[in-house]
Amino acid sequence: MNDIKVKVKDLSLRYGTNLALKNISMDIPEKMVTAFIGPSGCGKSTFLRTLNRMNDLIDNVTIEGEVLIDNINIYDKNIDVVNLRKKVGMIFQKSNPFAKSVYDNIAFGPRINGISQKSILDEIVEHSLKQAAIWDEVKDRLFNSALSLSGGQQQRICIARSLAVNPEIILMDEPASALDPISTAKIEELIHELKKQYTIIIVTHNMQQAARTSDLTALFYMGDLVEMNRTEVIFSNPAKKQTEDYISGRFG
């Protein structure tokens, strides 16, 4: 097992008075793929969004506990959330490219970081698109609107866009749930490539996907972390009855 990148300690989250995450603790290793599975509404996406403080945007959310990234508690009051999000990128369930050209989408992150020199931007755009394995498909239409691409391509643009700010961790919230099988396969292949360099945390509905792509799997149910282990263990020899029931499709 690799070094621990993210360490979560007794994390609880409330929407108003409604307890959505209950005392979650887990260790997420570096440069590996960790999958969160569970029935919808179990808190897996909410949990994912605590790792880059995306829940800050929602009113009425209170969080207790700690999330340590590289041994720094990201809920400390001195934390710079903007820089945190540069380190922890996020890919969303619905691909959300900006209504700009492919090039401008990718260059968005570097530009807000003050990079304006065209040659550097060109380099970053090309590199990021290559990393996201979509360079060959879009290199001739870099200046067309990103919205003119297919759903699967749009999602890979979003991945490239996120890579362009040089993150260390990439959070993926059901990145392939809206895509066809071929596009899904491409994304999964990409995840496999990316884990060589990035720590990847993926939320998925699809257990086969978790089994195919991840090194570790965590099962959530009703705001609880039921079980977390190496993926092959979870899928072949789970410790808990609840996990086994879920894996075999008896609920959820």
Partner: peptide
């Protein structure tokens, strides 16, 4: 403007004002 657009920008490390200005 969908919330996803703002989130996309913020998740890239844009500040609130950068998000407003460019998205």
């Amino acid at each position: 403007i969908p919330r996803e657009m703002r989130e996309a920008s913020l998740a890239l490390g844009a500040t609130k004002w950068q998000t407003i200005k460019s998205v």
